[in-house]
Amino acid sequence: MLGKLIKYEWKDTCKMGFLVLAVIACMTLLGVVGGVFPINFLVKNAQGITDGNELSNILMGFTVMTTYMVYIIGLIGGVYGVLIYSGVHFYKTMYSDQGYLTHTLPVTSGQLLISKMFISGVWYMLVLLGISISIMTLSGFLINVLLPEGFWESVAEIFRGLLWDNSEGYAEVRMVFVQLIFFWLFNLLIMPFATMMILYGSLTIGQLFRKYRAVMGILVYFGITFLSGIFGSVASQIVTTMQMLASDMAEDYTAVFMYGFGGYYIQFFVTVGVAVGLFFVSNHILQKKLNLE
């Protein structure tokens, strides 16, 4: 039954998911056409390669500014768009009239929660991946335009060193690099599902209220994210400070990065812990306290 739930959840949400990915692709294209090309034009003007007048420089500068503003708003809109759509879709299918169908399917409440968290998490992950690719693409173009020739050769040299050079300097940087990869993977593979579970758990807790359940669910969401953020941040600060006091940073410059990661992992585990807790709380509410209006 879980497979069937996942199949229909995917069918229900794929239009929205592909739309957001298409928006990200369009934003990337816009960033290249309206950002990179004018910057290239300005750089060549500055270098005296091309001959542009002041007005054209102002226009190009304005185009670049507007483009990147639209680009950033578009990407942020993509992230929040998926979050808001997922929350609305979850609420509609679980707690509005459609809930009368959802909750009479021969499936467990755990299966319902998992299917919804899994699909929205996958979409959130794809959108974050799309944004990462978009930023990397745009950065690649900008590096080509702004940085001197030979930059990519230097980058390739660093990567070769990271992979094959076993000297002490590279070994330390390699540790930081590996941590960075883990940091990114954790963010990409686990946090989207935890984020969705926190959202769904909050909306489910909102069902315990007699009136204004959707509003209460949203307030619970903000409350939980705020409190877990504060708790995670305080805990990570304490641990990071303790680690820093116990070591000599002047001797080990990579320690700065490692402590940063340590703090991040604490916040990560707090978020995942809250998400897991909310899964069980939501499951309990659906089994024992469900009260569809």
Binding site: H103, T104, L105, P106, V107, T108, K289, L290, N291
Partner: peptide, 24 residues
């Protein structure tokens, strides 16, 4: 139908408590 949870008492359908089995 399992849309509302009772405050007290027990409901059984074909000998089963309300759940996926009864919803089928």
């Amino acid at each position: 139908n399992g849309i509302l949870a009772p405050t007290a008492g027990e409901i059984r359908i074909a000998g089963m408590p309300v759940g996926p089995g009864t919803k089928a």
